[in-house]
Amino acid sequence: MRSRAVLRVYRGDRQLGTLKSYEVETCEGMVVLDAIHQIQAKQDNELACRWNCKAGKCGSCSAEINGQPRLMCMTRMDRYQGDIIVEPLKTFPIIKDLVNDVSWNYEVNRKIKAFHPKPQQGGTLRMQQYDVDRVQEFRKCIECFLCQDVCHVLRDHNRKDVFAGPRFLVRLAGLEMHPHDVEDRLEAAKNILGTEYCNITKCCTDVCPESIRITDNAIIPLKERLVSRYYDPVAWVWRKITGKRKPV
């Protein structure tokens, strides 16, 4: 393993910035976040980044490393041979250096109706583990927003006005598939969160550090529910007759 490495780190704000080179000492098992911390402590006290747990559990240290959206704390230095380029996320405005303004995500989150259970039978909810497994996959999300960063509807077309992005479709799917939930969020999924804007290129799934199968397990089932609600004539007739809104 090499004993030194060069990092080229974005320094600047949303208007102006450059990649600045820093040489760091490396040691076994070192991750990119360690290198950033070393730069902060020894070379450049003003280099800004976010981090918390340093164990892949909080989703704070998202960045683009050699162009790939990744968590800095879970990215080993020894993956790379040459210089390592570290930049902030491209989809969100830059505050400073590696810190992005991700406040838009928190606004979107408030548009989703939270979990509301059926009235209770004797206090505790009864659920089978296989039902729970399905939802727990979505609840692994650590809100690193890497999926939002890589989603081309947000990244290339900047349609934050109409599309909530993969992170929030994952949350939505988790709520919709909760065995005890009574809310109906399909109208919001269509009209407010813009589920139909996703054209299932699966880029989000590729970058998810929690390996959530975002497209296959969350977005496609949501799209299927939207199809039966809004575009399936048989289901439309069924609803007219029975008055039931949720698919059987």
Binding site: F115, T124, L125
Partner: peptide, 17 residues
Amino acid sequence: MELEQWGAMFDRTSDGR
């Protein structure tokens, strides 16, 4: 139990608790 009412999804026993 309150947390569960707010959406927490804990692992289950074989009888669903």
